[in-house]
Amino acid sequence: MTPTPAPCTPLPSDAGFPRLVADIGGTNARFGWVAAAGEPVSHVRKLAVPEFAVPADAARAYLEQLAAAMGTRAVPRHAAVAVATAVVDDRVAFTNSHWAFSRQALQRDLALDSLLVLNDFEALALALPWLGPAQLRTHGAAPGGPGARAVIGPGTGLGVAGVVPTRHGWQALPGEGGHATLAAGDDFESDLLRCVRRQYEHVSAERLLSGIGLPVLHAAVAEVLGQPVAAPWSAEQVMAAGLARSDAASDRTLDVFCSLLGSFAGNVALVLGARGGVYIGGGIVPRMAERFFASPFRDRFEAKGRFAAYLRAVPTALITDTLVALTGAAAAIDAEVGTGVPRPR
């Protein structure tokens, strides 16, 4: 029997397939399939995290659905799982859900030759160089060209990552930037942060700029406006009322959300030197649609004093395709185990 190649051994173009890819957040787990070298991610399914005890159960459910659809058994050789938490050692525990697992155990349970586990925004960053116009909506000029790129994603939490060009291809820069301290840009925001600090000692960007943060931000806005709420609103309630402009506090909350996000995105662009562009991902901003593009986001992105001109030249874009992290996960497997089909650089 021919021995299985080690994970870092380049494979011929007809080997190492099929492959399983997954993008797991606090609410949903998206799975996809790469059938052969050079083929895009296909057979994408979205499963609800609360419906499964552990990721292995969700993966098996997906593979069963896939087998039924293909009419044959679905047996992946390699897999890459993008997760909404920091990846440090064998034990992976999600920040905003009940899921936790051992990487070695998951590889064994799914009978994989290799398993990559990477931060979900590392995967999203790896997908940035391959995004096309149909997957983006831009503020003016489209991102691209030389230089680093960054992605920020308000979803259940707040993810941040970057990607830089190297002579060996694109290299992701994972991190936990969503937990950096959030700063106020004006007196109203200073009052907001003062309110939130009475409840939380550290006010990170994720504390307000996320699905878990919208209710906190809304309560603080209502208090500063002199309209305190009796009980916290859900993120869905805040979003719906804000978009309908049926509640003053919710309406102002969405404006403040976009302003704070713009300031934070500008900070990320400066830290990473993201001259190639800053992308906004996650599930919250796409729901705002025109409201986001009419918001103070871009003005606040550029409002960095002596470096306003620097940031004026940095393009920003909204990622409208919610499945692009799966493409990044597939690229991560290519980089780890090899493929006979070269990707564009």
Rank of each mutant, 00 (worst) to 15 (best):
Y200K: 09
E201G: 15
Y200G: 00
L243I: 07
V229Y: 00
G213K: 05
A231L: 04
Q227E: 14
R245W: 00
E201N: 10
V238T: 14
A205I: 09
Q227F: 04
L209K: 07
Q227R: 13
V238D: 10
H218C: 14
A222Y: 07
A220N: 12
Q227T: 14
I212R: 14
A222S: 14
A222W: 06
E201D: 15
P228I: 11
R207Y: 01
L214M: 13
A230S: 15
L217N: 03
M239A: 08
I212F: 02
R207T: 15
S234G: 13
A241M: 05
E223K: 08
V221L: 05
A220F: 10
V224S: 01
P215S: 04
L217W: 02
L214I: 15
L225R: 13
E236I: 03
Q227I: 07
G213M: 07
S234H: 02
A240K: 07
V216C: 03
E223L: 08
R207L: 08
E206R: 09
E236Q: 11
A222F: 08
L225I: 12
G213Q: 08
A235Q: 06
A219R: 11
G211A: 05
E206H: 11
A244Q: 11
E236R: 11
P215N: 06
I212E: 10
L208T: 13
S234V: 03
L214D: 12
I212P: 00
A235I: 03
E206G: 13
Y200I: 05
A240S: 08
H218D: 15
G226C: 04
V221T: 11
Q237F: 03
G211P: 10
A230Q: 15
A231W: 00
P215H: 03
L225V: 13
A219L: 06
A244G: 04
G242T: 10
A219N: 09
H202T: 14
V203K: 01
Y200D: 13
S210F: 09
A244T: 08
Q237G: 15
M239N: 01
G226M: 03
L217M: 02
